[in-house]
Write a protein that binds this DNA or RNA. Sequence first.
DNA 1: GGAAAATTTGAGCAACGCTCAAAATTTTTG
DNA 2: CAAAAATTTTGAGCGTTGCTCAAATTTTCC
Lengths: 202, 202
Amino acid sequence: MSKALERREKLRIDLILAAERMVASRGLAGLKTRDLAREIGCANGAVYNLVTDLDELILRVGSRTLHRLDEALSAAQSAGDLSPQETLVRIAIAYCDFAAENLELWRALFEHRMEADKTLPEWSIEDQMQLFRHIYQPLAALFPKRSREELGITARSLFSAVHGMVALGLEQKLVAVPLPALRKEITVLVRAMIDGLIARAV
Amino acid sequence: MSKALERREKLRIDLILAAERMVASRGLAGLKTRDLAREIGCANGAVYNLVTDLDELILRVGSRTLHRLDEALSAAQSAGDLSPQETLVRIAIAYCDFAAENLELWRALFEHRMEADKTLPEWSIEDQMQLFRHIYQPLAALFPKRSREELGITARSLFSAVHGMVALGLEQKLVAVPLPALRKEITVLVRAMIDGLIARAV
DNA sequence: GGAAAATTTGAGCAACGCTCAAAATTTTTG
DNA sequence: CAAAAATTTTGAGCGTTGCTCAAATTTTCC
């Protein structure tokens, strides 16, 4: 590869990492092209040589966040040999903890909205799909009779419900819930949801 | 009241209604002061005579949305004389339907974020608290032994879980779920959550 | 080394929320 | 009712924003 292209690649990575740091510290709204350019040492116009858009940059940062989240959920899924129920609780708690520890980056995943005409790139959609798979496996163990499609729907429902509790729980707007209390609420409700689903399944 | 103040009040109401229409049609990001000023027939600077901030204006619009949502949930709560379980399902479905029918206004409730130093006005916090009360009553009927505080926590958990399903369900980013399917998922999971909570309570 | 190709640059554009001296209007006063 | 005083409205303008593009710079190639 030519020297110019090497430098370009290096700068692109610097840019994404700088953007990640900036979102983490100042929130998605605090991400500014001029600050980014100063941070990585180039002209502000140069940002658009590395990335077509701020949208793309945000998606790149989001991709990194999703992969780290994926790792956190994987760790929770394979820790110890728990029952499927308790594995699901662990995953939900891991999701909550990740969101709390990576608050602004996690928020950015859901705050960001593309303009109506632009569509999400393929790799970004792929990233998001992967998340449900951690829930899918324990669910499949609990409901062996259900079809792949049914399990997928249930997995998304469970994920969404936990996401809602975390989202509103970490929101300062509504009553600020202390993190330990939130973890407890999640544990209670996930157990209840699974119990309820099993009871109805028989 | 003086003629000047009357006109001011009228304009302020016009402004809020215009803002509501603009958010509903173009989303929160499409709310622009210059367009608002043109719409209600005044100078762009005049917007700041009626409202201190765009933040305040958004909060005013949010307040109206919350009140309409409150009405929708009230209607669902008092329709027929259903069991507490089925009332909770009805409320959840009503929430889902309201969000779908008022997509951008409903989104604005959660997308909007104040700058860190500014705090929410009292009336806005009050508005938000009211929402849980619809869930509280059927829950109290189901769990007569629980304290007010415990019921409040459970109410918020249930609300948050349903909110999460609606939020991710109506999001175009993830797999777009057809509305009837979403309503069905919500019904299933709310019933499961309640069943599970009751089973653990005995 | 020097011409050609590719890349980087930063001034500049349009649009944004918001401000504030000046203009217009309303209210008070004589 | 007219002039003075108080109040309200106005819109040009400020500082920022994401993004563009002709010009300057650097790299590539022979």
